[in-house]
Amino acid sequence: MRAFGYARPADAGEAAALLRAGARAMGGGTDLLTQLDRGILPADEVVDLRALGLSGIEHDGGGVRIGATTSVADVERDAGIGERFPGLRQAAGAVGSPQLREMGTVGGNLCQQVRCWYFRHPDLQCWLRGGETCYAQIGDHRKHGLEPGDCISVAPSDLAAALLVLDAEVETTGRRMPLADLYRKATAERRSTLVLEPGEFLTAVEVPRAPDASTYVIAGERAAWSFALVGVAAARFGDDVRMAAIGVSNLPRPLDPDDPAAGLPGLEMTRWKRRLLETLASDARAAVGR
């Protein structure tokens, strides 16, 4: 591991100050440390957010509030979530490996970097990393996204898909917003898929009410411990079915339940993923009824 400093402040203001000074925010560290080690994200200092008292799951009324540094495994094991938000529990269970679920935090999971073997290649500097080229589009993109754009990497957060269909909101150090607004397309000027400003970090995610039914279905490259090739979440509130997917775009993406592959044409090497998306969308829809 390359050398860098480490701070574990107990005060959010101190953490924010360190982050404004250029430090990297860390939850479980499972995504961050591999990026630091490969030189994808250079950093002199890492700020561990786990001593800020941001862990915990609170059920109140119909909703649930999950602290940003709550581990993914604790979400998966929470009885209330399992009962009222089965799609969220399934998504938590689909994250990485058992050890990564124990270490990984909800905030870190929502803010993790895109998956792309060029983005994570130690010797290449792709467009999203500030370079000139999206290597994936001229190279081997068999597992990449279906949405045209400057970058065809894929958003990997299973939790994001499950929370999007629940109308979740995220709370940061400075504001509150719908989860969907946490993400935006990277631009030439700003090569990031998150809207967070320097010094800003997630403190909690809140789901306002429980759906009548919810589910999360994933297709991976093996039976377990695989980032989703495609993951589809669905929730039904009365007659209203919401759907979202990961693995198809570099943002967690809402889908039209009646036409899930709309706007997702893919390239020649990824066209197969449209079929997969349609299958999973149909399975998800069947699971939530109507």
């Binding site: 290649h121 010797d123 290597y135 190279g139 081997d140 068999r142």
Partner: peptide
């Protein structure tokens, strides 16, 4: 998987 444009393993 070998990248066709750079010849490196991805």
């Amino acid at each position: 998987v070998v990248d066709p444009t750079t010849g490196t393993v991805v």
